[in-house]
Structure formats: C-alpha cells, structure tokens
Design a protein around this nucleic acid. Structure first.
Length: 570
RNA sequence: CGGUGAUUAGCGCAGCUUGGUAGCGCACUUGGUUUGGGUCCAAGGGGUCGCAGGUUCGAAUCCUGCAUCACCGACCA
C-alpha cells in the first residue's frame, strides 16, 4: 500500500473528547472516528487490526472444533418474550418496530436465536455435543458509553454457544474453551488473567472472565498475593474474621448525634474508629404472590461496602436489588436514613460476616439523630442471620486460603459461562436420547469482545510516540520511509524495488511515498505503530545499505539491501 | 437517571463580561524554500457561530426552550 493511495488520517492534536490513552491514540493514528455516542466508523488501518484480531479468534475457535455461523443483528421480540428476557433485560435492549409494526430488538447477544436454531435443527443425541460461534456486531444501549470502542454501544463480539446432554460433557467443552481463550490472548500478546466471575443477567452457574490488566479498566479484580487465585470483586468471597468475637466490655448507651447522618460524620462526632461502627441499609425483599414487599435490613461494618450482587443472590432479597424509599424507611423503622440500626429491629436483619464479628460497636438507634454505643450482638440484638454481603478489600485474607487480597483494575475481554438449561428449557430445546426419550439440553456460552481487544491492546502497548503493535495484530508489518525521494533517483529506485519485493512476498507493507519531510513520516509511522521501519537515504546507499528500526525496542541497525528480505523469512 | 460543563472552519481553541464587518493555531490549496526527526516565506479556499423562539434599529454575544456531546455520580442509611 502506498500512502498516496491510502486513507492515513493521522492527527497531530488530540481530540478533546478522548479521555483514555487508547481512545486518544486510536483517533490520532486514524483507526476510528466517532459517529455518535458509542458508535464508531473503523478506518482502513483500524479495520486491518480488527480483522487480525478476528482471524486469530476464528482460527482458535476452529481449532477447538467450534463451527461458524452468522445470525442476524435484528431479532424478533417474540424470541425474547419466549426466554423471558424481554422484560428482564431492561433499557439496554434497544427495541424497534418494522413497517408492519412488528416488534424487534437489536441483538445484545444471541442465546435466543441460537437456541431456537438448535432446537429446530438438532433432533438426536448423535448430533451432540455441538459448539457453534459467530463474529457479529452487537448493540447494547449502554447508560454511559465511554473510552471509545472500549465501551461502545455497537461493538464486534465473538460469541459461541455449546449444547450438551450432560454436565460432564458441558464441563469438557468449557475446559476446551478455557484453553482456547488462553491461547487466543497469548497469541494477541496481551497480559491477561482468567478470573472467577459472576454470571449476571445471562444466568448460569460456573463462569470465568478473562481480563487484560490495565489501570484504565472498569472492573476491580481481587488477586491473592500468594496463589493463582483471581476473582472479580463482585464474586470474591469475604471470609469471616478468624477467631471468636471479642467479649462485650461496654454497656449499651443512647447518645444524641445531631445532624450526624453519615457514617463518617458519626465516627467523627463520637471520635470512634469507623471500623467500630455499623451501617444499616434497607432494601426491598422478595415477595410471595400478591403481598406487599417486605423491607429487609442489611448490616455492614462502617468502612465496608455492600456487594449488590451478593445481596441480590440471597433468596430473601428482591431481584434486581432495590433500596427502600424514604417513605418505606420511615414506615418500617420509624426514623429517617442516617439513624437506622439493628437494635430492636422488627424486620428481618441480615448481618455481614465482618459486622457480626464486632463487639462494643456504634449503630443508629432508629430515632432521628440518636445512635447507640457499646452495642453487642446477642446481648442487645439477637434476631439476625449472618451472610457474606460486602466487597472484599485489599488486605483481606484470600478466599483460597493462601495469602492476602490485592486489587487491580482489569478490562474484561472474554467471558465464558456454563449456562445450564435456562434457555433450552424456555425454548424447549431438546433431543431424543439413546433411550428414545426427549431430554432438554444444557448449554455453555463463550464471548470475546473483539473490538474491545483492539483498545485493550493499545492500553498495554504504547509509548509517548504512539502505538506499539505486537506483530500478530499490526496493521502493517513494515513501513518503507524514503528520505527525500523527490530529489534522489537512487532513493526512489531502491524504495520502489524493496516495495515490489515485499509485496511479492505477501508482506503487508506501507510505502510512504508522500512528499513529506522525514520528521513528519517518522512521527506518523511511530504513531501508527508499525513494528518495523525501513529507512532509505542517500547516506547509506553508497554502501548498499538501509537502516532498519524496530518500533518495539527502538533498536536501529544497518543492513545490506540484498539481505532485507531475510528479515521477513520464516 | 441525577449533577456539572460544553457546542464558533476538518481538529484544537479565542471572541460573549460591556450587542455593531467572525478570528488564531494546526490541517487543506498554490508558488517558492528546505530535506535523516513534526522547515521557513508568501498568497489563498473554507463558518446560516448546535437548533427554535424572544428582546433589540442591530444578536456568536442578552433571555427562554430544545437537541447533541463530554465529565462526575448513581454505596444512601
């Protein structure tokens, strides 16, 4: 490719809207352009990278015996009605009507379509197990698109779905996919970790996320500092403190705490360590049919944060987690938020393991502007249950039993689930078994954020000059940078000759034939991140040499023109 | 969804307080100059100042509404 015939679209200045480095560099290097919030056009250079990522993913999926299909992005709402997700999915699901007023959705994922397909196409146990995948555009109407293609509304995803008659068979495919994912991220040259994850709205039991480690990541990952343990903070278990709860030392006393409505204000006012206080949150409980929803109290140590997913997963608590309104709070405990506490509570009280380990603590007295001090479980407050409710924090003991928790940021680039029969059941997807009986299938699903990987890779591979692509996904393997080609016939002839040779050898080469000064060319190629630059100038032609510069290491060396092709052999 | 801010040439911004001929840098075009790290000189092209109302002799500027974009928050007991 010659730059004169190409759409380079590099920018000197950073557009103001780009916040993270990958977004800035993707705009500056001419990889993408913003069309609307969360929607991007991929320019030629960006598309080359995207296709490379896509092909690595495709090769590894095929190696893992998954077979490729392509499903529509627009899906009938009926299918979503059938699985129950039309209601469950919420406003992230973009709904639309066609000219006949039939209801459709833009697919944020494809469980429904594929399950329907398999239920129609597969009839016998002999056809199983089956693992199909596609690489298709998804649309999720995100609350807040940001960081460029990292959290866009429209994005490219590889999604695979496997179908099985038994859990053992599902586990086998799950393990194969786990390994395939590791190979993919290794080939992509990413610093990644598989982590134990929550299954979220997709449903199911066992799940792992694959995260690329980067400070700009949106997820907190909890690691053990002594073992391989890694889990999404959402999922990491907070263990009960070791040892017995200390014995009560203080007597229960009521203290006026005017205007101290937050935990910080209370601990400041009473000059008490925040770790000796508890906070009480009121949430809506699960209802039996027709009843008004009960209000449930959740008690946490003052410095801890509620893990909404853990709370939501408790049977007594409504899904999705809903905090009690001001009216509900007043009606159920007789005071306003800011003075709630578990003492003499008439509603169900669920206490976090760490809060349950406190003695002589401070809590609200269920009277506005009054708190208790010297509170002790069982003595002052006996009707409660203990659960794991909080987020782990740095320094907690690791749930694996070895080491302490360290928290790092990660970008989620892959997620694999054992779905179970949720969709197969809803869509009546079964086959005849060897015994001639119909059996509902069990499923796995496996996603990779293809477009997000491009951004994640840049987050990990850049310097002050621009992107440093690993050669596996570089848009061009090599750039030819001739010095003053317009004036020097020798430079021009040499550059053209090498260009021909590289092209004939099938190597992706970008020939900078613009009439630009050297500095402009160097800056552009370093911004774009081509791994290898061939710099051709009068200076070295007397010795039949050109300069080879490695973008990743910065090393420069001289090389005989006749040997250039040896760089790309193998 | 809430809060904050922005919207003026392709990009980055000034002008608005105090209403009166729309500006700067980059990019682009032409000519010259320079040629191993974002040259220099000169001449040009490009904007219904986000949209719709209002005030005024006159609005980028003041007022109202709307739209879009961005950032922050959505953990509150």
């Amino acid at each position: 490719m010659r730059t004169s015939q190409y759409l380079l679209s590099t920018l000197k200045e950073t557009p103001a809207s780009a916040e993270v480095i990958s977004h800035q560099l993707m705009l500056r290097a001419g990889l993408v352009r913003n069309v609307a919030s969360g929607l991007y056009t991929w320019l030629p250079t960006g598309l080359k990278v995207l296709r490379k990522v896509e092909n690595i993913v495709r090769e590894e999926m095929e190696r893992a015996n998954a077979i490729e299909v392509l499903m529509p992005m627009v899906q009938p709402a009926d299918l979503w009605e059938e699985s129950g997700r039309l209601n469950d999915y919420g406003p992230e699901l973009l709904r639309l009507n066609d000219r006949h007023h039939r209801a459709f959705v833009l697919g944020p994922t494809h469980e429904e379509v594929i399950t329907k397909l398999v239920s129609n196409e597969i009839n016998s146990y002999k056809q199983l197990p089956l693992n199909v995948f596609q690489i298709q555009t998804k649309f999720r109407d995100e609350i807040r698109p940001r960081f460029g293609v990292m959290r866009g509304r429209e994005f490219l995803m590889k999604d695979a779905y496997s179908f099985h008659l038994s859990q053992e068979c599902l586990q086998k495919t799950y393990d194969i996919m786990f390994d395939a994912y590791c190979r993919i991220f290794e080939r992509l040259g990413l610093d990644y970790r598989p982590v134990i994850a929550d299954t979220g709205s997709i449903g199911g039991a066992v799940s792992h996320e694959f995260h690329v480690l980067a400070d700009s990541g949106e997820d907190d990952i909890a690691f053990s500092d002594e073992s391989d343990f890694a889990a999404n903070v959402e999922k990491a278990e907070a263990l009960a403190p070791i040892g017995d709860r200390p014995a009560p030392n203080q007597t229960l006393s009521r203290i006026d705490t005017p205007n101290a409505k937050t935990i910080d204000a209370v601990s400041e006012f009473l000059k008490v360590d925040i770790k000796s206080t508890v906070k009480t949150l009121l949430v809506v409980g699960e209802t039996d049919k027709g009843e008004t929803a009960p209000i449930i109290a959740l008690v946490l140590r003052g410095d801890h944060q509620l893990n909404e997913i853990k709370a939501e997963n408790l049977a007594q608590i409504a899904t999705p987690l809903t905090f009690a309104s001001e009216e509900q709070i007043l009606a159920s405990v007789g005071c306003n938020a800011g003075s709630i506490g578990p003492v003499d509570m008439t509603i169900l009280v669920i206490v976090d393991r760490s809060a349950a380990h406190l003695a002589d603590f401070v809590c609200g007295a269920n009277t506005d502007n009054v708190h208790f001090t010297g509170v002790n479980w069982d003595r002052d407050c006996s009707d409660y249950t203990v659960e794991d409710l909080r987020n782990v924090v740095e320094g907690d003991p690791s749930p694996c039993g070895k080491g302490k928790i360290v928290i790092k940021r990660g970008i989620e680039v892959g997620h694999i689930f054992q779905l179970g029969d949720k969709y197969a059941q809803a869509m009546k997807c079964g086959v005849l078994t060897e015994a001639g009986k119909n059996q509902i299938l069990t499923m796995g699903c496996y996603g990779i954020g293809v477009s997000r990987i491009v951004a994640a890779s840049i987050e990990q591979n850049h310097d002050k000059y621009g992107i440093k692509w690993p050669s596996a996904i570089a848009p061009f393997q090599v750039a030819i940078v001739p010095m003053n080609m317009a004036k020097s016939v020798r430079v021009k002839e040499t550059a053209e000759k090498i260009y021909q040779q590289l092209q004939q050898a099938g190597i992706e080469v970008l020939f900078d034939d613009r009439k630009e000064r050297p500095g402009v060319m160097f800056a552009d190629h370093e911004l774009i991140g081509t791994p290898c630059l061939l710099i051709i100038g009068e200076r070295n032609l007397d010795n039949q040499e050109i300069e080879v510069k490695n973008r990743i290491t910065g090393e420069k060396s001289l090389m005989a023109i006749d040997n250039i092709m040896s760089l790309f052999e193998k």
